[in-house]
């Protein structure tokens, strides 16, 4: 699927300006870039949470699922939180097991730790199928074991449901592990795009090379 070009300004500051982009179905596109480069803003505009300066949606006719960087646990148990987005109990149990929160099913979601809340939120969004699935740093609060389980889950979901997945991450190694394509943002601009290996091993711009070196690859 294709997104229209757009820009986003907060007050007088233009924080994002992007050209038309292609987000292929059944593939994971990673968005990488340092803090403040506009990754979350990109996600919010795509999800329709924030309006672009053009005041028109930049996607049309597709269902969008969006997992915010900071997820909100509803005041109910972990399991019921997940079941707000679907009625398939078997699927919910399976997702909780994969992300090892099955033991917390009956616990109040408000009492979960940061990493546990992130795992609950990922289970919750994966209960429905969306044409475009946007995940804003879904594993940042998770430990390594959960991160790897979550990555595999995201991979499987994108293959099985043939959705376009947009994975926002500041981890280059994560992009390496699961992304088919990457977009690199710097100060609100797209500086690189292409197949993961091609971009990460031979960036076309000096600036990207410095960013990649800095983040230790």
């Amino acid at each position: 699927m294709k997104t229209k070009s757009f820009s986003k300004t907060y007050g007088k500051r233009r924080v994002l300006e992007l050209p038309e982009l292609e987000l292929p179905e059944g593939q994971i596109t990673a968005v990488i870039g340092p803090n403040g480069s506009g990754k979350s803003t990109f996600a919010k505009v795509l999800a329709g949470i924030e309006q672009p300066d053009e005041k028109k949606p930049i996607l049309s006719g597709v269902s969008v699922g969006y997992l915010p960087q900071k997820s909100f646990p509803f005041r109910m148990t972990t399991e019921k939180n997940i079941l707000t987005n679907g009625t398939d109990h078997t699927r919910a149990a399976e997702l909780m097991k994969i992300l090892s929160i099955d033991a917390l099913a009956k616990q109040s979601a408000k009492k979960l730790s940061g990493g546990e809340t992130a795992r609950m939120a990922l289970c919750r969004i994966l209960m429905s199928r969306y044409d475009l699935l946007i995940l804003d740093e879904p594993t940042t609060a998770m430990d390594m074991e959960s991160t790897l389980a979550a990555e595999q889950l995201i991979r499987e979901t994108s293959h099985e449901t043939d959705c376009a997945a947009l994975l926002i991450t500041h981890s280059i190694s994560q992009a390496r592990r699961i992304a088919d394509r990457v977009l690199v943002l710097q100060r609100g601009e797209l500086v690189e795009q292409g197949a993961t290996e091609a971009v990460l091993s031979a960036p076309s711009k000096e600036e990207t090379r410095r960013f990649l070196d800095f983040y230790g690859l």
Binding site: A47, G65, Y66, L67, F72, T84, R124
Partner: peptide
């Protein structure tokens, strides 16, 4: 915060 999450999940106004 709640709204960002519910809209992200695609829930309607009632929900």
């Amino acid at each position: 915060a709640l709204r960002e999450t519910t809209r992200g999940l695609g829930f309607g106004r009632m929900k």
